[in-house]
């Protein structure tokens, strides 16, 4: 931990600087909505200003950001919009004293690698917070190792501790099927699953569980754990991206980082995508991100090794055809990856 050591003794303050280093990902904007705004109940003939209610909850804002920052994923987006509507209507109903049980929002995200499951889960946490469903709206991302212990008596406390950290937010379990190992009937993962099932049923007020993983393996996981399946209300499938979508994702990523593809490079990149898809370990948007990362590298060395004596801003931003075509995907077929 760093200390500000500008001479003199350190002053105590009532609010010392927050230590960093938690793996929790905080909600982008923690604030605003409280869950039980102590409003008095509305009368029979009152009306609610819908547009005010909408803007208060920031739901439009968050959904719009989701739409602009994530390419494609239409089925996912429409499902999220549905959930948002339900929660907003629920909130308004409550103001008239119309009770309804708290909706079950545990979810399962299935899809190929790099289709945006983790990214969407983060947004979901934020959205649920703005809609007053979650008190904090942070996301705790875990895998089997964070939940399952090494010896008898280790698993339950370990799982409980993670659950405690996730309270008020979303517990995101990546590759949830690793929790269940059918080949070993004494596997401690079973204990974790049992605790999860109990919490998902009884502590819905405190956290939302999202399990994620590849489609077919999640399928088998649910088949062997029907209890888990029945506690999950929303099964959301993330489709693979089309080439056009991947190109738009590339543009988005580059734009974010202050780069752009020139026209030839764009053509080259489209070809690259077609080739890359055929190769092993294709991971949709993540492959795109990695490919661009490498072309940035090549651009940098191209610039430094060039004959040029001066560079313009545009030189620094432009990724050209060669930066793309130097990829191994275009050349030797014997090596994997690239």
């Amino acid at each position: 931990m760093a200390e500000s050591s500008e001479g003199g003794p350190r002053q105590f303050s009532l609010r010392p600087p927050r230590s960093s280093g938690t793996e929790n990902i905080p909600a982008a904007d923690a604030g605003s909505t409280s869950i039980d705004s102590a409003e008095s109940e509305l009368a029979e003939d009152d009306v609610i200003d819908l547009s005010l209610e909408r803007s208060d909850s920031k739901v439009v804002e968050v959904l719009a950001r989701l739409d602009s920052e994530l390419v494609g994923l239409l089925p996912v987006k429409s499902r999220i919009a549905d959930i948002a509507s339900l929660l907003l209507v629920d909130k308004m109903r409550r103001r008239f004293g119309l009770g309804s049980s708290r909706p079950n929002l545990h979810m399962s995200f299935t899809g190929s690698p790099g289709t945006g499951k983790t990214t969407v889960a983060l947004r979901m946490a934020e959205l649920l917070h703005h809609l007053g469903y979650l008190r904090k709206g942070h996301l705790v991302a875990v895998t089997r190792d964070d939940l399952v212990g090494q010896y008898i008596g280790h698993t339950a406390p370990k799982t409980r501790e993670v659950l405690k950290r996730a309270m008020g937010g979303v517990l995101f379990i990546d590759e949830a099927y690793y929790l269940y190992r059918p080949e070993n009937e004494r596997d401690y993962g079973q204990e974790t699953i049992e605790i999860l099932l109990q919490v998902m049923e009884n502590e819905r007020d405190d956290l939302v569980v999202i399990v994620a993983g590849y489609r077919d393996r999640m399928e088998t996981f649910f088949q062997s754990n029907p209890g888990m399946n029945s506690r999950i209300a929303h099964h959301i499938d993330f489709p693979d991206y089309s080439d056009a979508e991947l190109e738009r994702i590339a543009e988005l990523i580059l734009n974010e980082q202050g780069y752009y593809l020139d026209d030839d490079a764009r053509i080259a990149f489209a070809e690259y995508l077609t080739l890359r898809r055929e190769r092993p370990h294709f991971a949709n948007a993540r492959s795109v991100r990695n490919a661009l990362e490498r072309s940035r590298l090549r651009q940098a060395s191209r610039l430094l090794n060039s004959e040029k004596t001066v560079l313009t801003k545009s030189d620094l931003m432009r990724i050209d055809e060669l930066d793309i075509r130097a990829s191994r995907v275009f050349g030797r077929v014997d090596e994997a990856g690239a």
Binding site: K136, K164, G168
Partner: peptide, 12 residues
Amino acid sequence: GLPMFELQDAAA
């Protein structure tokens, strides 16, 4: 029990 670290919410 053990001390609780890195909580975000009082519920736990």
